[in-house]
Design a protein around this nucleic acid. Structure first.
Length: 297
DNA sequence: AGTTGTCAAGCTAGT
DNA sequence: ACTAGCTTGACAACT
């Protein structure tokens, strides 16, 4: 198991998600922002290695406006050396990387422009991982998308749209069960038709399922990951107390975390802790896993 | 220096 | 009808 947290580390004093307003776009602004983001990403990765976190999600704004028509710069070429150097650090330390484009990426949208923008955004994410020299175990995950009042039709659009994606996107493309529209069962069905792996989100599964236990759900999803895809990625969070259903908890609940680890004993997976306080909870979780001999102390 | 409204992009369910 | 929630955080214009 590799353990990680998404996008942000608040103990370092820099962010790899720095961006700016579209209005203030300039070539110089873009280059200096990306430079800053890459420098900080390297620092976060170093901190992660020191603290035993070998799984990390890189935030989408690493290259702001990368998929927007305003961006004419060949950033892959411009940051070639540095991207490769970050990638080499990741490989040297046997780290696992994922990315998760945001809610605007909907390849099953009815509006063709939304699909086209989504495709561009997916291409940006994959180009970035490619430029770092990472293999097909570095994944880019999205939810299936909207229902638009007709789930069958929307699923059909999803499959047709996926088939048109370029190969370098397909090789990293992964779907994740969400808490409202497309649950594990839907994702497994799509996985069978499209031959894509399924991220198992434990919290979303608790919100919406078809009676499968967490352990059984995880094992079903695990089968969708082939050798080239690497170990299954699992997302972990809990329900925030006295908040509406689906909102992620602020801090990790150690009793529930121990319970989850107990339930899934004997199954190997890479675990992403989607807790709002990020590395703070991740440190608590790794403490528990060290005691249980999942990791060396 | 600290506070507050706003930001490229969309959808769903809860209130 | 409205808006929180989703990886919401971080920028930028205002006190």
């Amino acid at each position: 198991m590799k353990l990680g947290y998404p996008c942000i580390n608040r103990s370092i004093g820099c962010t790899a998600n720095s961006t700016f307003r579209l209005k203030s776009y300039s070539k110089e602004r873009l280059l200096s922002t990306v430079q800053n983001n890459l420098d900080c990403l390297q620092k976060i990765l170093e901190w992660n290695v020191e603290h035993g976190f070998l799984f990390f999600r890189i935030g989408s704004p690493l290259v702001p406006f990368a998929s927007h028509p305003i961006c004419k710069i060949d950033w892959v070429k411009h940051f070639k050396e540095q991207l490769k150097s970050v990638g080499d650090f990741i490989k040297k330390n046997k780290m696992r990387i994922s990315m998760h484009p945001d809610q605007f990426v909907l390849i099953n949208a009815k509006d063709k422009r939304i699909v086209e923008n989504s495709k561009k955004e997916l291409e940006y994410h994959c180009k970035l991982l490619e430029a770092m020299g990472l293999d097909s175990t570095a994944k880019v995950m999205i939810h299936v998308g909207g229902v638009y009042g007709d789930k069958e039709e929307s699923i059909g659009r999803f499959i047709r749209s996926y088939r048109k994606l370029p190969a370098f996107v397909k090789k990293r493309f992964v779907i994740e069960n969400d808490e409202r529209c497309y649950d594990l069962k839907d994702c497994l069905m799509l996985s069978k038709k499209m031959n894509v792996p399924v991220v198992f989100d434990k919290f979303h599964h608790e919100c919406k399922n078809n009676g499968e236990s967490v352990k059984h759900g995880l094992m079903l999803a695990k089968k969708t990951w082939k050798r080239k895809d690497g170990l299954i990625m699992v997302h972990y969070s809990d329900q925030k107390k006295s908040a509406r259903k689906g909102s992620h908890s602020e801090h990790i609940d150690l009793r529930q975390f121990r319970n989850f680890i107990g339930q899934t004993k004997g199954i190997d997976f890479d675990l992403m802790l989607e807790i709002k306080d990020k590395e703070k909870s991740a440190l608590k979780a790794i403490g528990i896993l060290k005691k249980l001999k999942y990791f060396k102390s």
